[in-house]
Design a binder for these strands. Structure first.
Lengths: 215, 215
DNA sequence: TCGGTAAGCTGACGGCATGACAGGACAAGT
DNA sequence: ACTTGTCCTGTCATGCCGTCAGCTTACCGA
């Protein structure tokens, strides 16, 4: 099946091979957190992993290929984000709680993986289809249920007919992603962490329901 | 004064020197639009400009330095974005017009400079102070007047006391920036360009005033 | 017209990363 | 011990980086 981990030259990787491969991925992940993407060199990753550049090229075509691998694992993990929104109520106090928990959960996930998500974002913005697909996969696990929530409210006539649920949901999600990536920008504006979250929850609630929350 | 353009080794650049310098910046700008940031090499920029790598290093310490230069020019241009928001009304039909024009103007600016803004965003997200300052400079020209608008409405009691104007304004602005960078993500969701803008305007209006617009 | 001076540009070079290969080390089964 | 297939690395050609000395060009005053 697809589960077979293979080297660049087509061999099947055994236990030891998979271990070094994973170690290379871990070290790359770490390097992405500590130095600019542009400056991440294969030789540094290899050194950090206690091996040689040649070994790196045995498992990955280049740095980008390895990054895609890391991002793919993260995307799988990100599927659980759907639980933050799916099947939740957006009415009354429960609605406010939904908004708050959604914002919290999403920000935590994004900040936890900020280094790799930065690179994915860049790749997607630069037009690379593979990165774009990955980014959509992650965002969709949240955007899709969020869109459904808006559609439901619209069907009940609680939201205007001329709103596009997907546009609203998508915009709110990228807002959260961008805020998480640039949290430093808000401290510069004099906005503290603790203040930011409820305000984001407010915006999300307003966007989804069109109304102010009852707290 | 500060207007003196200088080479890396301290010489004052004359007319001819400034021309090549500018040509290098233009070529770099073009390369950033057409190839991944990671793959932009000094030698390519130099070749494209019909000169040699050594010349590049005479005017810029490295690629990053040149990028900062381009971004700085763009930041000056971005100051005019303030006019989209400053002194506008957020009440009634005028309020809806303000939201629409703001969204349009901002998106156009961001998309026009998307290549360089991608790099600035990346640099800022990676923690580089110079990129972060530049990013804030551009965003602030919009965030500041937007924050004032919210503060004004709050003073009139039309917006809840517990909202933080800066947090709201900042979040809406980064939302627009992120949407502009990832427009492709929305076409994937089945949202067309023309549909996106009014929905963004709606979110902005909701965020600023707390109410649905009257169109 | 003629140097003198500073600006402007480039060839060339050591250093380092890249990416490919062949061959050696290693583990496991026989 | 021998075989087989996995795993790693030394090595090499190639190409980019960043710097320097030195050449050409433009400007200017005498």
């Amino acid at each position: 099946m697809t589960g077979q981990v293979r080297t660049v030259d087509g061999r099947v990787a055994g236990r030891r091979g998979q271990a070094t491969r994973q170690k290379l991925l871990d070290c790359l992940s770490e390097m992405l957190s500590s130095s600019p993407y542009r400056d991440v060199k294969v030789i540094d990753v290899a050194r950090k992993a206690g091996t040689s550049p040649a070994t790196f090229y045995q498992y990955f075509p280049d740095v980008e290929g390895a990054v895609l691998e890391i991002a793919d694992e993260m995307a799988k993990e990100g599927a659980s984000l759907a639980q933050l929104v799916a099947g939740r109520s957006w009415a009354g106090k429960a609605g406010w709680a939904t908004a708050e928990e959604f914002v919290d959960g999403f920000l935590d996930f994004w900040r936890h993986h900020d280094a790799i998500l930065r690179v994915v974002d860049l790749g997607a913005a630069e037009g690379d289809k593979r990165f774009h697909r990955l980014r959509m996969k992650i965002l969709n696990s949240v955007t899709t249920p969020l869109t459904e929530a808006v559609e439901e409210l619209r069907a009940k006539g609680r939201v205007d007919k001329d709103v596009n649920p997907a546009a609203i949901a998508g915009s709110l999600v990228v807002m959260l992603a961008a805020v998480a990536s640039h949290q430093k920008g808000f401290t510069t504006l004099g906005v503290k962490q603790a203040e930011l979250r409820p305000n984001l929850a407010l915006l999300v609630h307003l966007g989804i329901t069109g109304r102010k929350p009852t707290r």
